[in-house]
Design a binder for these strands. Sequence first.
DNA 1: TCACGCATGTAATCCGTTACATGATTCC
DNA 2: GGAATCATGTAACGGATTACATGCGTGA
Lengths: 182, 182
Amino acid sequence: MSLPHVILTVLSNCEATGYDITKAFSTTISNVWKASHQQVYRELTKLAERGAVTYRLEPQVGKPDRKVYAITPVGTEVLEAWFIQAPKLAPPRDEYVARLLSCEVLDPTPMLEHINNLIAESQQLLNHYALLEQRDYGQSTSLTQQQRLMRLALRRSIHQRRAWMAWAQEVRDELTMLAASA
Amino acid sequence: MSLPHVILTVLSNCEATGYDITKAFSTTISNVWKASHQQVYRELTKLAERGAVTYRLEPQVGKPDRKVYAITPVGTEVLEAWFIQAPKLAPPRDEYVARLLSCEVLDPTPMLEHINNLIAESQQLLNHYALLEQRDYGQSTSLTQQQRLMRLALRRSIHQRRAWMAWAQEVRDELTMLAASA
DNA sequence: TCACGCATGTAATCCGTTACATGATTCC
DNA sequence: GGAATCATGTAACGGATTACATGCGTGA
């Protein structure tokens, strides 16, 4: 499990509230790790119990207090211990291929629609990614370290989505033939 | 959630015991969906409660009874209803990219090792996949429908792994430069 | 004034993982 | 004789999802 460590990484850069971190999960980190605000708040509570983070209350007029979290030395150790462990790939759970297997016993027509939608969505996303890459990392010759890392995260999404695209096109061709011969 | 539907798909082809299905999950379906035997047994119990599957007991001499499961018409309806729903991609939870983000605040050397391991493993797996594809689908000019579908499942794994490979190589180059300049 | 965003949670349920358990058979 | 495999589970824990809940400020 890496959710607490992603949170600790965010806090290594700067202090943040639960809300700030949730925002990060829905913007910059959204391609890397998915987490709901409930998960974030619960994890922050647990990390505070373990002494990996601390927080100070910032009173606000007419609003509930902000809890501003910061990483502790213990938290840094936790992060380092996790960092040197070998990463694991997510176990395969693929709804597209699962449905594809059902085509042996069911009419494949709906599957062809799903695949066409996947192709269309993927094309749009890839266009979007290309724009992002150009806009954020394409101009200057020298990028900061942070920019290089974020660019590699984006590259991951691009490679992954291209793989979906290429596969979906193979499936479309195969299913089209299959539907024609039936 | 698709676990029950993958099970129903298996049972649409032929009757099977919990053990048979578990074996399928660790062989033919292993690239598509991961499930432990405990999950399979629990899911079979639930499907039987919903009336989507039935089972008959096959007594055996000196062994515990075999429960041989079969899909029911209700089960087929459940499967069809799921089949026409739009598949969802797995939410992003990527331990490699997560660790990559930490490289901003931690020494990237361990990450470079992780990435080199990923490249080596991926190369081996891709070789293995190539052999499988050739052996199982490369010879005859006309494949059965079942074979075509299984081949597309394999193609998915190949595309996915190639994407990992290409990305990992980009990361390796970038991290090597980064380590050299530090 | 009504909806949306900010900011913060609790509760229930489900899914996945790990560990524990049993008792026979078959292969080395 | 011991290890692995067949076949079947229960129990406990933790993570993820969904729903429910509050209460203020801001813009249409």
